[in-house]
Amino acid sequence: MESVTLQVLRYLPEEKSEPFYQDYDVPFQKKWVILDALNYIKDHVDGTLTYRWSCRMGVCGSCGMMVNDQPVLTCETFLETYLPGPIRIAPLSYFAVIRDLVVNTDDFLGKVKRAKPWLITDELKPVTEGEYRQTPDELKEYKQYSMCINCMLCYSACPIVGLDPEFVGPAAVALAQRYNYDSRDDGHGQRNKILMDDDGIYSCTLVGECSVVCPKAVDPAGAIQRYKVTGAVEWWKSVVMPWKSDK
């Protein structure tokens, strides 16, 4: 049977302080994705190989890795694409590596939390007044941004994230816009304070790769650009009409 070589970055902190590449030969199967090949290694070749995965269908967002230097979900990336190999597999770029292909997500989750990606309302309607209604057009405004699965591929595609670890990053802004554009939400002001501050949206120089690698077509680059425009409009408003701002 045909076989293909996977060069997998290993990081074993208790043995070596630096990561190193280890080669594995796996049988090639047309229907296999990269994750299937990794599972083959784990089951049949080397049980110590460590990586995250769960749903195998591009929804959970946990199997993101660098394959030939490009961030992808390994569950929807076919081996066949990279023939004849070898295929280089590394943990997602710019994140601290805990072990082999597993990265530390604390920093990312902290940034997402800072963007307050939940509905913020000025006053809650009593239940007797019924539900918060939304037209299909109002839904369309934010639906694209709601598709984000927190897979972190956009962070690994963004050199600004690597250069400036404090930069809030693509997904966090897309998730903020998910709620800013929601007709039921009043949290814009609170999110502004965080996202227009140091290391916020204006650190982005529109490399644009975040939107290219996004497996869910969320377009974080567009979200950031639109936020920059909103931020600029509000800045000028606060200068021209200072009495109207600061809410």
Partner: peptide
């Protein structure tokens, strides 16, 4: 201060 960034960004645009 970074808070001037919306101003510079407007001129940039």
């Amino acid at each position: 201060s970074k808070n001037n960034d919306p101003f510079w960004w407007t001129l940039f645009g």
